[in-house]
Design a binder for these strands. Structure first.
Lengths: 251, 251
DNA sequence: TTGATAGTGTGATATTTCTCACAAAAGTTC
DNA sequence: GAACTTTTGTGAGAAATATCACACTATCAA
């Protein structure tokens, strides 16, 4: 049985592609233009780094296209992916406008075009336009809530729950409705998935196998298609989508 | 061997008690006064709730005294403590100034006096005073970074690492220098500790026993005294405190 | 001071997750 | 399309963590 139509409509990015995405959905047209006006464009090839863990937080990055992952590395070489961002997302990591250091690296995983914003320029803009500052704060608050709900899911329901939560979020952020269900339009290896949920590649592999035999997911051309979203929801205690605000349930 | 003096000085709340604490350390005297001016005082007894998961996010709470924990409950009755806040902390959970719902409950664990702030009043204040808005954003950014680093620690180094990280953070937030080391001035049961790190009471109990026999910690009057902070740091890959900004390593 | 209640300590066992080892499959390059 | 390289799949065993059961200790209120 496929996912019901209401879910498809609300849960996938297809309908959103014609609409506003990322931070622009949270700020006015005018303020969005202001924000755009202080960026300069930079192209970043897959595999390159926008910044490294420990660099100064001098700039913010507005993602125009491509995919970028935010990764914390440990000395022992185990990486943890904090977030995966795309078109419309703003990469910002700073406590204020004074000097501080990045806590993770930004690795481009699909060729990207980003708008680079000088912290100082943003500060001037925010100070001058009170309404922009408020909108920006709203967005910051939302990002914080996403982080909280994400990590809560990763901690509370074991690795299968963590994987299920991640797959649901990927549906909401990268999903495209298709006849079989929701296709996650993002190619990740099992190792990359493991780094998101804090598990080993082998565990992820076994869990995915089980989801396949259950009929919850299927894989086509290396992309995961979620056939039974409700199965995933059950594994991570995701309440009915009326209660769980979609804007928070994302990567 | 006790903790070295430099560490003691920087890592405990003793020196900070005469200084600014919580959000007031991040905003100017003038803006702090503005913030105080829109609060009304409320007393909340231990055991009471400031708000419940699912309530509308109508107010913010500035903690003047007492201790409050922010808890997410699941249907199966397993709770997870997201944060423990104290004097100077601001409890805020909102994506912007429109209607939204709390994602966790705020439970008073030591009699508290809080300043209640109407979301609408704060909005006016922030819009009117651009410098306040910037300071407020700095603080929001910092809170987000604390959340990220906390959950990262909870996920990456197993339960012993999660416990070690939590104990270090408790030293920084509630620690008082004493002759044996750092006394954590907060009484938590093993169950409460378990709810912070996402483990069972029994696991916490066994891990604490081991820390005791190692000589890393000791318990006096129901409070934990950390005797060898470096032992804890080793367990959660905490880099030297010159690299890890203290403002981020807190509860 | 005595129950009642809440919290701690600990063994035995089950379950989850990781580790290691290696084979099979898929993707890339020349 | 042969030779690499990367990724996936899987078994066996080890390690970490949870579960259950119950005794013990501390705290508190009458």
């Amino acid at each position: 049985m496929a996912v019901n139509q209401l879910e498809l409509a609300s849960r996938t990015k297809t309908i959103n592609q014609t609409e506003k995405f990322g931070i622009s959905a949270y700020i006015s047209e005018e303020n969005n233009n202001r924000l755009q006006s202080i960026m300069y464009t930079k192209l970043a090839a897959a595999g390159s780094y926008l910044f490294w863990d420990g660099d100064e937080t001098e700039y913010l990055y507005y993602v125009r296209s491509g995919i970028i992952k935010l990764v914390k590395s440990t000395e022992e070489g185990r990486d943890m992916t904090m977030s995966i961002v795309q078109k419309g997302d703003l990469i910002m990591e700073m406590n204020g406008f004074h000097v501080s250091l990045h806590n993770f690296s930004a690795i481009v995983i699909e060729d990207a075009e980003v708008g680079v914003i000088q912290k100082k320029d943003l500060e001037i803009l925010l100070q001058r336009h009170g309404d922009f500052a408020l909108e920006f704060m709203s967005w910051m608050g939302l990002m914080h809530r996403i982080t909280q709900s994400k990590f809560r899911d990763l901690l509370m329901y074991g690795k299968p729950g963590a994987l299920a939560s991640t797959l649901i979020r990927m549906c909401n952020s990268f999903g495209i409705a298709c006849e079989d269900g929701i296709r996650i339009d993002l190619k990740l290896t099992n190792t990359e998935l493991a780094e998101i949920i804090g598990a080993t590649r082998e565990s992820v592999n076994r869990m995915l196998s089980e989801l396949k035999t259950e009929g919850t997911i299927t894989v086509k051309n290396g992309q995961i298609i979620v056939q039974r979203l409700s199965n995933l929801k059950g594994k991570c205690n995701c309440p009915s989508f009326l209660v769980c605000p979609l804007e928070i349930c994302r990567m």
